[in-house]
Nucleic acid binder design. Structure first.
Length: 656
RNA sequence: GCCGGGGUAGCUCAGUCGGCAGAGCAGCUCACUCGUAAUGAGCAGGCCAGGGGUUCGAGUCCCCUCCCCGGCUCCA
C-alpha cells in the first residue's frame, strides 16, 4: 500500500487517502452526489483535472458545474469542443485562442483561403458539437516539452506563436516554463483532437452543460489591429437548461430595453443620414426629458456654488496647441477650418475655455476653489465602428465643470464632489455604485512623478471617506492626470461607466495659471475636470434603458393623458387638462372623436404615460377621475381631482 | 479604422429565376359616441440609401460612396 496522505476539505475536515488517489476518487469517497456533480477540483488553490493523482498532503476542493469556477471550466471545455467541430467541418482551419468569458466562451479561427463563417455554419458547427458530446470523448491531459509542443502544432501557426511567447509569468493559456500542457480528445475514426491548454477540463465531453453558438465576428489576433483579423465564434454555455434559458431571456430583456428601439417607438430622437454618423437630433419628446435633466442639473449646480460660464464651439489652433490636445488627440478632433489666415478647430473638450475664464483676471487664494460650470457641447471624431446610438456619438453635451483649487484643498474638493455625484445620480433612481481609480498611463502622459503620486494619493484619500467600493485600474488614467470614474448598475444589473473626476496638474502648467497665496506669492492652482452625467446623450440613453422607456413622472415627456369616455365629456376632460397644465404638469387630452376608449387607453399605455385618466358621466358629476397608474392593471375609479393632483405633485417633487 | 451582416412606405417586414412596388400597423377621410390594451369602411402613402455600370429590361447582378447592425480596436 502506498504512503498515506492527508487531504483537507473546505469544511475543515481531514481525510486520509493513499498516495496516488485521484481527485475524482476523492470526490467519490465524499459522496455519490458530489462524484456525479464534480467536473474539476482545486488542489491547494490550483485548479486541476479530476483524473490527477495526489501524492502529498493537500487542501482539496471539488469544483461542481453550478459554481462560477465550474461554469468557467464548462465554458472552456465547450470552446475546445467547438474547435474540434470547426476543424472537422473546415479542413485546414487554424485555431488560435479560445477562452471562457463572461456568460460563455469564444474561439478564434482562420479558415483556408480567407473564407468566412456564415450563420448557417453556426448551425452545422453546433450540430457537430452535439455529436462530439454524444461520443463522450475523454479530455486527456499531457505535458510535453516545449520542442515537442512545437512539433505537435507544426501546422498551427497561432499555437506555435503562443508556445514561443510563453514566459514564466504568462500562465494564461498553457503551462508555465519549458513544459507545456496539451489536452487530447480521442475519437473513433480519426486522430485525437489536440489543443494547447492549461486546463483543467471536464472529464469527458458528455459532461458539458447546455450551450448555444451565438454569433460570428471578426477579431484581431492578439487584440492587435496590426495583426491579422481572425474569425471569432461566440457561444454561451451554462450548467443547466434553466440557466441557459435565463441567460437568453436576459439578452431578450436587454434588447427590449435598447434605447435606439425605444427612442424610435417613443419618438425621442433620431439619427438622420443627412447629418452624418453619430450626430443626433432630439425630437420634442426627447427634448422634454433632456430639458428636465438639464434644468435639474443647473439648479443643483447653482445650489452647490458653481459659477456658470459659456464658451464657443470652435477655437483657434493655438488654444489646442497650448492645451496639448493637438499633440495628443489630433486624430480624435474634427479637422481644421482655415479662415483669414487662422486655423480653427471644433472643440473636443471644454477645459481650455474654462481655463481662459479662470485666467481672465488674477486670482486670490481667497477665491479658491473656483468652480466653473457649463453644459458644453463638444465634437469628437470617433472612429466609425465605435458609434452606438446615443451611447457613443460624435457630437455631445457634457455637464462639464473645472474646479481650480489650492493643492491643500484637493482632498476636500474631491470628497465634496463624490457626495455631489452620488446625490445627482441617486436623484435619477440609481442605487448601486462602484468606483474605479485610474493611475498613470505607461506611455503617452506628461508631468512629474511627484505630481502624479500626490494626485493619485488624493483620489485614494477622498474615496476612502466616501463609502464607495472601488477598484484600481493601473495605467488607465488620462494623459494629464489620474481619475476616479463612477460606475453604476442599472435595473438589469448592467454596469455603466458614467461620472468622471480627473485631477489635472498639467493644464495649469501649460496655461501658466496662478493665484496669489496668503504669503503674497504666486502659486499654481490644481485643476479638477469633472462630468457627472458624462454626456447628456449617454446618460439619457442609460436612463431610457434602465427604465425601459417608462421614465419616472418627473422626467416623462407626457405625464398624464386624459380620455373622455364620449364627446359629451370633452368639456370636463378639458378642464382637468387645463388645470394640470396650469399647475405645471405635462398633460394632454385625447378626445373621443376617432377612436374607442379601449383603443385610446391602449395607445396611451404604449406611450408609457405614467397616468391615464378616464372621465365619464360619474366623474363629471362627482368631480373625480378614473386613474390608471402605469404598471397597475386595475384602474382606480372615482378619485377626487384634488387628490390626484396632490399625488402627482408629490411624485414629481420627490422625483419618485 | 478593420471583419462580417444589412438599408424596400412614418414603423415592422415580404418581394421567387432580372419582367407592372406589396402587407400589417401608423396617418388621413367618413360613419360610430363608447367606462379601461386594437370599431368599421374608404383614401392616400415609394428617387427600393445615393451614384455609376451590365442588360431589351435592375428593388433583384457588378463597382463606388453614405448610413445602420454585431464584434475587434479605440474612448482625452
Amino acid at each position: 500500500m502506498a504512503d498515506p496522505i492527508t487531504i483537507k476539505l473546505p469544511d475543515g475536515s481531514e481525510r486520509e487517502y493513499s498516495s496516488g488517489t485521484t481527485l475524482g476518487e476523492i470526490a467519490a469517497s465524499i459522496g455519490k452526489g458530489l462524484a456525479k456533480a464534480a467536473i474539476a477540483a482545486k488542489v491547494d488553490g490550483e485548479r486541476a483535472d479530476l483524473e490527477r493523482p495526489i501524492d502529498h498532503d493537500a487542501s482539496v476542493a471539488i469544483i461542481t458545474a453550478d459554481s462560477d469556477e465550474g461554469r468557467e471550466v464548462l465554458r472552456h471545455s465547450t470552446a475546445h469542443v467547438m474547435a474540434q467541430a470547426v476543424t472537422d467541418l473546415f479542413p485546414g482551419a487554424k485555431y488560435a485562442i479560445g477562452p471562457a468569458i463572461e456568460d460563455g466562451f469564444y474561439y478564434d479561427f482562420e479558415l483556408p483561403d480567407g473564407a468566412h463563417f456564415n450563420e448557417d455554419d453556426l448551425e452545422r458547427i453546433e450540430a457537430r458539437m452535439r455529436e462530439i458530446v454524444q461520443a463522450d470523448q475523454p479530455f486527456e491531459r499531457e505535458e510535453v516539452e516545449r520542442d515537442a509542443g512545437l512539433a505537435l502544432f507544426a501546422d498551427q501557426p497561432y499555437k506555435v506563436e503562443i508556445i514561443e511567447r510563453v514566459e514564466p509569468d504568462d500562465s494564461t493559456e498553457v503551462g508555465e516554463g519549458e513544459v507545456i500542457s496539451v489536452y487530447r480528445n480521442p475519437r473513433d475514426g480519426a486522430d485525437p483532437f489536440v489543443d494547447l491548454c492549461r486546463g483543467p477540463h471536464v472529464p469527458s465531453t458528455k459532461r458539458l452543460g447546455p450551450f448555444k453558438l451565438m454569433k460570428v465576428a471578426g477579431a484581431y489576433w492578439r487584440g492587435d489591429e496590426r495583426r491579422p483579423m481572425l474569425q471569432r465564434i461566440y457561444g454561451t454555455a451554462w450548467d443547466s437548461k434553466a440557466a441557459l434559458a435565463d441567460h437568453l431571456h436576459r439578452l431578450e430583456e436587454a434588447e427590449r430595453r435598447d434605447h435606439r428601439k425605444i427612442g424610435t417607438e417613443l419618438d425621442l430622437f433620431s439619427f438622420p443620414d443627412e447629418l452624418g454618423a453619430g450626430l443626433a437630433i432630439w425630437h420634442p419628446n426627447g427634448a422634454i426629458v433632456r430639458r428636465v435633466m438639464e434644468d435639474f442639473s443647473r439648479a443643483e449646480h447653482e445650489r452647490a456654488g458653481y459659477d456658470f460660464v459659456f464658451s464657443p464651439h470652435i477655437a483657434r489652433s493655438t488654444l489646442w496647441e497650448t492645451s496639448g490636445h493637438l499633440d495628443f488627440y489630433a486624430d480624435g478632433m474634427y479637422p481644421p477650418m482655415e479662415l483669414e489666415g487662422a486655423t480653427y478647430y471644433p472643440k473636443p473638450m471644454n477645459c481650455p475655455f474654462h481655463i481662459l475664464v479662470y485666467r481672465s483676471h488674477l486670482r486670490s487664494y481667497r477665491e479658491l476653489p473656483v468652480r466653473l460650470f457649463e453644459l458644453g457641447t463638444v465634437y469628437r471624431f470617433e472612429r466609425s465602428g465605435v458609434l452606438h446610438g446615443l451611447l457613443r456619438v460624435r457630437g455631445m453635451t457634457q455637464d462639464d465643470s473645472h474646479i481650480f483649487c489650492e493643492p491643500t484643498q484637493i482632498v476636500d474638493v474631491l470628497r465634496e464632489l463624490l457626495d455631489f455625484v452620488l446625490f445627482i445620480l441617486r436623484a435619477f433612481g440609481f442605487t448601486e455604485f462602484e468606483a474605479e481609480i485610474s493611475t498613470r498611463p505607461k506611455e503617452k502622459s506628461i508631468g512629474a512623478d511627484a505630481d502624479w503620486e500626490m494626485a493619485t494619493q488624493a483620489l485614494f484619500d477622498a474615496i476612502e471617506g466616501s463609502g464607495l467600493s472601488y477598484e484600481v485600474a493601473e495605467g488607465e488614467g488620462a494623459f494629464y492626470g489620474p481619475k476616479i470614474d463612477i460606475h453604476l448598475r442599472d435595473a438589469i444589473g448592467r454596469r455603466w461607466q458614467l461620472s468622471t473626476l480627473q485631477v489635472d496638474f498639467q493644464e495649469p502648467q501649460r496655461f501658466e495659471l496662478e493665484y496669489v497665496g496668503a504669503d503674497n506669492e504666486r502659486h499654481q492652482p490644481i485643476m479638477i475636470h469633472r462630468a457627472l452625467f458624462g454626456s447628456i446623450e449617454r446618460f439619457f440613453a442609460i436612463l431610457v434603458e434602465h427604465y425601459a422607456g417608462a421614465l419616472p413622472s418627473w422626467l416623462a415627456p407626457k405625464q398624464v393623458t386624459v380620455l373622455p369616455v364620449a364627446d359629451r365629456h370633452d368639456a370636463y376632460a378639458f378642464r382637468i387638462v387645463d388645470r394640470l397644465n396650469a399647475e405645471g404638469f405635462r398633460a394632454e387630452l385625447v378626445d373621443a372623436a376617432a377612436d374607442s376608449l379601449g383603443a385610446r387607453v391602449r395607445r396611451a399605455k404604449q406611450e408609457k404615460v405614467p397616468y391615464v385618466l378616464v372621465v365619464g358621466d360619474e366623474d363629471a358629476d362627482a368631480g373625480s377621475v378614473g386613474v390608471n397608474a402605469r404598471g397597475s392593471d386595475k384602474p382606480e375609479r372615482g378619485v377626487p381631482v384634488d387628490d390626484f393632483v396632490a399625488r402627482l405633485a408629490a411624485e414629481v417633487t420627490e422625483r419618485a
